[in-house]
Amino acid sequence: MNILSLILILCASLFFTGIVIRTKSILSGRKGPGIFQPLKDIWRLFRKGAVYSQTSSYIFQIAPSIYFASVLIAIFLIPVGNHPGIISFRGDFIFFAYVLALGKFFMIISAMDTGSSFSGMGASREALYSLLAEPAFFILMGSFALLTGYSSFYEIFSALHFGSSISYAVGFLAAIVLVIIALIENSRMPIDDPKTHLELTMIHEVMILDNSGFDLGLILYATNLKFAMYGALIANFFLTPGYEWYYSIPIFIGVQFVFAITVGIIESFMARFRMNHNPQYIFMLTSISILIFLGVLLILGKIA
């Protein structure tokens, strides 16, 4: 049954961006496209031909596939409730973070491969933001390692149960951190506006300006997968052990749904930050993680 999480995440990824877009269109009073429109777009891209830049080399051609594979393998590591991921070992979240970083490394250099100044700009920002977000994730996982005494996704999540009021606060903060990390990793509001039409203010979109056809489809679908993956991580906070699958699957779906709507709401009501305010905002995540860490110390009574 270890494949359960993979199946669930893949299913969630099919709906995720659709729900986000649907929420946005309802909130802005538009009719908006159907829930499956993003998937249809991707499907259309898969069947299209491609245009490659004269400047680009083989890096540009292999990068999207490697990026996609990195997201997939990261999903393999995610547990759902009682079921560990396909791969699960002590310290798997280190592998998780680093394999995602590998995908990002390739996307960054593929952006630079085109020789476009716009792509380079996006690449530079992406590299900076991911470097700032990285410590937050590790400190978050460190706090949970401290709380539970384990160091793998599966063990941490199955040992995690909330008792005191502080632990609820910690869980809430952790969910916030993960939501924001997901937004940063997927280059959504308020860090980056995926719908902007000005190259100078783009981050992720400008990196993939030159990608087309199958490659672009892969990159777009990887974004969906990443959303569903972070949604699954958040869902795991609420899947305490002992639940049977007929409880955990609805909870999982519910959390994904709420997450998608939250993203939609954030994107409808928030404006994008000025570019030079982004680092502060992202670095704030690390301080929240440190708060979580202190909270955990409080729970364990290591500081009084």
């Binding site: 069947r47 245009v51 490659y52 830049s53 004269q54 476009s116 716009f118 056809g213």
Partner: peptide, 12 residues
């Protein structure tokens, strides 16, 4: 079977 084209980098 898809058509592959080579063109200059998009520079807006």
């Amino acid at each position: 079977s898809a058509e592959i084209d080579v063109a200059p980098t998009w520079a807006c």
